[in-house]
Simulated scan of single mutants.
Amino acid sequence: MVSARLPVAPRPFMDELLSSWMARVAARYGSEPRELMVYLAGQGGRDAGARQVDDVAPDMELLRLWAQACRIDPERLRRRSLASRYPDRPEGWLLTEIVPVCLACFDADVAACRDAYLRGHWRLAEQVGCPAHRTMFLDLCPTCRGRLRPSFRLLNGMLRPFCRKCDAVLTSRGGEEGSSKRDFAIGVLEFQRQISRIIRRDPSRLVRLEQAIRTLWAPLDRDGATRPVLALWFEQSGWNCPYEARAAVGSSAPLQHLSVRWRALTLVILHYLFGAELVPGAVLPEAALVLFRRAAPMPWLAQSRDARNRKGKRTIEASAERVHRLSKRPVHRLNGNFLDERGDFGRIHP
């Protein structure tokens, strides 16, 4: 069969996600990307319609289908993938599911008389706020409070983002943001800039940073606990991990499974524990030791024979060994690990 040629196909923006561009192309025909993919696959793409294009590392067969239909160089589309834009970034630092958005960026698109679109850097795991507008990203619809999955529709000649669930237009106009929220966003933006620099320039510090984050989201004390180690950081006794964050507990890449607010809170805790560097050094602070000693043994907790011989210094590896030893001891039934148990964690920081 002869491949289809679409009469109208907008060009991708420089910082646009592949999935966002495809959604805009489909919206021009009152369709969704999957429906248009099925149509293009039926014109010569065999079973391609059953698959979705991955923003991280897309299938070139699918990209060629879209490139032929839209009269665009497939290499140009490949360069829009996250693997091409961030070749040295570990996969654990890329979001794979919900893409958080900045409503102010959408309004800026409208003010510039162009289609709204999803930015590529919104899929970076450490990005929790918009540097341009100094606001926190959203992954919940401000109208229906459901999980946000934007769709694009024509409105006044331009494609605007709508909530797929409640059909509300996504805009920051009319919303009020308190000074406390803006101050919090500004503080978190500094943390995310520091982590971005570590990811780009300092592999050795990145290893320690990833280990600290995994330990914070490790289960408490024994396998099967649904409460993460960072529960000890809260004031509330008997605090239970919300359902939305359960997938991150015990994961090797916790930030991939967390909403914006939980990723931001993780950055705040890192700042409290390890200061401006956000990365543990050779000697762990006492507050970090209190948390890390309560972690259940996990495969990624490394053991080091050299750490045993060091006296007067407690490193990450040494504390991991202590975690393994403590995990073999009996755990009191009122330690607060599970939903039906109670425990007085107290507050470990002033």
Rank of each mutant, 00 (worst) to 15 (best):
27 A>H: 00
83 A>H: 11
54 D>R: 09
30 G>K: 15
87 P>K: 08
25 V>T: 00
69 A>D: 12
23 A>M: 13
47 D>I: 07
56 V>G: 06
57 A>T: 11
74 P>I: 04
77 L>K: 06
47 D>A: 10
86 Y>S: 06
85 R>Q: 13
25 V>K: 00
53 V>S: 02
34 R>L: 14
62 L>H: 08
20 S>H: 00
48 A>V: 06
85 R>S: 09
31 S>I: 02
17 L>P: 01
27 A>K: 01
59 D>G: 15
25 V>C: 02
45 G>E: 04
27 A>L: 05
50 A>L: 14
22 M>Y: 01
16 E>I: 11
83 A>C: 11
20 S>Q: 00
16 E>W: 11
25 V>A: 00
40 L>M: 08
50 A>R: 13
79 R>V: 14
37 M>L: 08
89 R>E: 04
74 P>L: 07
88 D>T: 15
16 E>P: 04
23 A>E: 01
21 W>T: 00
80 R>N: 14
16 E>Q: 11
82 L>C: 07
65 L>F: 08
31 S>E: 10
55 D>L: 09
29 Y>L: 04
57 A>L: 15
80 R>C: 11
84 S>P: 06
37 M>G: 05
82 L>S: 09
65 L>H: 05
86 Y>R: 10
77 L>R: 10
70 C>Q: 03
36 L>K: 02
20 S>K: 02
75 E>P: 03
44 G>N: 05
36 L>G: 00
49 G>N: 09
40 L>R: 04
67 A>Q: 12
50 A>T: 13
55 D>Y: 03
72 I>S: 11
26 A>V: 02
